[in-house]
C-alpha cells in the first residue's frame, strides 16, 4: 500500500548550505522521508527533496514529545570523533577522541553531554558510542 509520510511545518526560513540540503520558508509543510539521529531529516517539499535540520521543523499536530527520549543522568558513554569548537556559550568545545557521557539525546542532533563537571551541547554527528568505562 501507499507509504504515509509524516508532515511537519517549517518554523523559520531555512537557506541551504550544501547541495544535498532543502531550502524552505517559514510555514511551508514538508513530508519526512527519513529521520537521522544526527539531526538532519530527509524531507520532501512539493517536487524537491533534501536534508533539513530537525530544529527547523515541528509536527503539524503540535509539539511532539513522544519521540524525544528521556534524559539519562547516569550518562551514556561516547567518544568524540572530531574536534569541535563551541560557537554558542551553551556548547562544549572538545577534541577528537575525548570520552564524554551523553545525558540527553535530542532529536535536533545537539546532545547534552557531560565532560567531568562541565555540561553542554555537542553535535551528535561527532559522537560515537564507546561502550567502555571511562
Amino acid at each position: 500500500g501507499p507509504i504515509i509520510l509524516q508532515s511537519y511545518r517549517v518554523i523559520a526560513d531555512y537557506e541551504k548550505n550544501s547541495k544535498s540540503e532543502l531550502a524552505a520558508k517559514n510555514g511551508d509543510v514538508v513530508e519526512i522521508v527519513e529521520k537521522s539521529e544526527n539531526g538532519w531529516w530527509f524531507c520532501q517539499l512539493r517536487n524537491k527533496r533534501g536534508w533539513m535540520p530537525a530544529a527547523y521543523l515541528e509536527p503539524l499536530d503540535g509539539p511532539d514529545e513522544s519521540e524525544e527520549q528521556d534524559p539519562n543522568y547516569e550518562g551514556d558513554l561516547h567518544i568524540t570523533t572530531k574536534d569541535y569548537s563551541g560557537e554558542l556559550d551553551d556548547e562544549l568545545s572538545l577534541q577528537e577522541g575525548e570520552n564524554v557521557e551523553v545525558i540527553h539525546k535530542l532529536l535536533d542532533g545537539w546532545w547534552v553531554v557531560r565532560k567531568g563537571s562541565i555540561t553542554g551541547y555537542f553535535p551528535a554527528m561527532y559522537l560515537q558510542k564507546s561502550g567502555e568505562t571511562a
Partner: peptide
C-alpha cells in the same frame, strides 16, 4: 536515490525558537 546527509552538524534551533524554549 543516494541520500547522504550533509557532513556538518545541523544548525542549532533558530534564535526565536530557543527563546521560546528558555
Amino acid at each position: 536515490t543516494i541520500k547522504r546527509p550533509p557532513e556538518n552538524p545541523p544548525p542549532r534551533p533558530p534564535a526565536e525558537v530557543r527563546r521560546k524554549q528558555a
